[in-house]
Simulated assay, not measured.
Amino acid sequence: MNIELTDRPRRLRRDGIRSLVSETSVTAQDLVAPVFIDATTTTRTPIESMPGHERVPIEDAVTRVEEIRETGVEAVMVFGIPAEKDERGSRAWASDGVVQQAVRRITAETDAYVITDVCLCEYTTHGHCGVVESDAATDPTLTVKNDKTLELLIKTAVSHVEAGAEMVAPSSMTDGMITAIRTALDETGHTDIPIMSYAAKYESAFYGPFRDAADGAPAFGDRRHYQMDPANSQEAKREVRLDVEAGADVLMVKPALAYLDIVNTVSSNFDRPVAAYNVSGEYAMVHAAADRGWVDLEATAVESLIAMKRAGADLIITYFAEKLANQL
């Protein structure tokens, strides 16, 4: 049988032409590498659930960032593990806090673009992202006190910027956090500092390894009263719209892989850069499968990042940043 095919997509899949017609690409400049700075240690401490990552002491912050920069990744996101905690998380905004000390060193001695996570869960004894009442441990309807939390997020964001942070990323899903932080930054003369909002952050099972890494797991209860329900997509548009109206410069979706539909929705409906957070559980799963020989680590990781870009992400926060940068 003589079959005449006028359209043969395989023609464009051969070596030489394949890369020329590729629709999506990921480069090292698209990636942000998380860094964990630990005020409780003087040596690097491996994070068992996140192979290849460590908590590093403040004294090693610059060295750690330089290692990342050597791969071609230009931006880092700094997370802190404080030496002391209290109910309000007061070390989050202390001028000599772990993030503040690390950021001063990093910005003075490297060319990295420094983003800081603005939250309280790593700094509070209860591990929640804000102010809770003293009897919350026995209250099954625990909610973080929204407006009281805003005051502390403002202090934290301003302290990060005064230490040298070039972008702040509030992650607590507190109603009004972008308005409050934008107003505070403007009033203190930091009008040029952008805000990357964790605009659609879901109450996800994929965060487990991060909570070990940052020592930020809730001591009781969970975060479903202030993080989004994984079942909801329309709600994401409402959350994101509120942050855009409040002045958010970059919109983050977290997690990434299980929420690519949300990444696409945000990218399609809002004229702001979109960040996808390739979270710790996603990272750990690929490593675990690769360790068993079930998948190829680098190929699977690269494919995952391409999927995030294809869905509409402009930048990706990922624990794979260093490992994949040269290959990309």
Rank of each mutant, 00 (worst) to 15 (best):
A325Y: 03
V56H: 06
W93K: 02
Y202S: 05
V73N: 09
R69H: 08
R310C: 09
K237S: 15
E109R: 13
R10W: 08
A258M: 11
C129N: 04
I154M: 07
W294V: 12
T6L: 14
G52P: 05
F79L: 15
E298G: 03
H190L: 12
P82H: 10
M167L: 15
T265F: 11
V78E: 08
L150N: 07
A307D: 08
T6H: 13
C121T: 09
H160D: 09
I81R: 00
H53T: 07
T188V: 01
H53G: 01
F206P: 01
V158N: 01
M196R: 02
A276M: 00
P273D: 04
G176F: 11
N2R: 13
E4F: 10
T125R: 09
A307R: 10
A311V: 07
P9A: 06
K237L: 15
A61I: 00
A311I: 08
A137E: 14
T141P: 00
T156E: 14
R272D: 02
G80F: 06
Q234P: 03
A307C: 07
N278I: 00
T27I: 05
A290M: 04
F220P: 07
T138F: 14
S19C: 08
P170D: 01
T27Y: 05
N232M: 10
Y113N: 00
A92I: 12
T300D: 05
M252W: 02
M167A: 01
A321M: 11
D271S: 14
A75S: 15
M252A: 13
T40F: 01
T71G: 02
K254R: 09
Y202T: 04
G216H: 00
T63A: 15
G208T: 13
E235G: 08
A248P: 05
P34S: 12
A61W: 00
E162H: 08
Q29F: 07
A165Q: 06
T149N: 04
A217T: 00
A108I: 02
L260V: 09
A325F: 06
A200M: 04
R69I: 08
V274T: 06
L315V: 08
V158G: 01
A236L: 05
Q100S: 06
P9W: 11
A28M: 11
H225S: 12
G89K: 14
L120V: 11
L31A: 13
A92W: 04
K148R: 15
V132N: 01
A301H: 06
D111R: 09
D135Q: 11
G164W: 12
A184P: 01
G130V: 09
P34L: 13
T265S: 13
C119V: 02
S25E: 11
R13P: 01
F206S: 08
S304K: 04
R10G: 04
A28S: 14
D314F: 10
D215I: 06
Y198A: 05
E84F: 06
V118K: 02
L5M: 12
M285F: 03
M308Y: 05
V76M: 11
K201G: 04
S49T: 10
A108L: 01
L257Q: 09
R238Y: 05
R310W: 05
K148C: 09
R105K: 14
A33W: 02
Q100P: 01
I106L: 06
P170H: 02
A75L: 06
I47R: 01
E59K: 07
F220L: 13
L251A: 09
H53K: 04
R104D: 00
T138P: 05
R224G: 05
N146W: 07
D117C: 13
H128R: 07
S19D: 14
K254T: 07
